[in-house]
Simulated assay, not measured.
Amino acid sequence: MKGGGCKEEFEGWEKCVQEAEEAGGDVAESCFQVTATLHKCMEAHFDYYKPILMAERAMLADLEAEKASAVEEGAADAGGKKAAEEDAAAGVPEKEDAAA
């Protein structure tokens, strides 16, 4: 990071993170603006920082996929519970578990 066009921004980010950690504060909140400045610089020097930026994008895509999967699973679980509740209210006996 220190070899590219964003050396100063990176050093500023490192200093901010160190100070926030020493103070026991929230690094993300304390260093939000410094991080944004560093990221903007990295985008401006995309050719040099491409491996880092692409890894970051892949990580974000994975996180989004995990969120979407969790939401889908939650909706499926909620739908199954609702159907069981509706069956119970209608007097439909529960299905026996095949493993039992």
Results as ranks from 00 to 15, higher is better:
L53G: 03
D47W: 06
P51T: 02
G74C: 05
D47N: 10
E86H: 02
P51Q: 01
T35Y: 00
K40M: 06
A70S: 14
A70Q: 15
M54Y: 11
H39E: 09
C41G: 00
Y49S: 01
Y48N: 04
H39D: 04
I52H: 15
A70M: 15
E64M: 07
K81Q: 13
R57L: 10
E56N: 11
E85K: 10
S69H: 10
A58P: 06
A78Q: 06
A65C: 07
E72G: 05
E72D: 13
E73W: 12
A65R: 10
T35L: 01
F46M: 10
A65P: 04
E86F: 04
S30M: 07
R57C: 09
E43W: 09
S30P: 02
K67P: 02
V71Y: 09
T35S: 09
G74A: 04
A68W: 03
A83E: 03
K82A: 05
F46E: 13
A68D: 10
A88S: 08
A76F: 08
D62R: 14
G79R: 12
L53A: 03
A78I: 07
Y48A: 05
A76T: 05
G80A: 08
D62K: 13
A76G: 02
Q33H: 13
G74D: 10
S69R: 14
C31P: 05
H45I: 00
P51A: 03
V71I: 13
K40P: 06
P51R: 01
D77E: 14
S30F: 01
G79H: 09
A84E: 11
E72C: 08
V71D: 13
Y48Q: 00
V34I: 13
P51V: 06
M54N: 10
E72P: 06
D62G: 09
D77T: 13
E73F: 12
K40R: 15
K82C: 05
R57S: 12
A76S: 08
A83D: 01
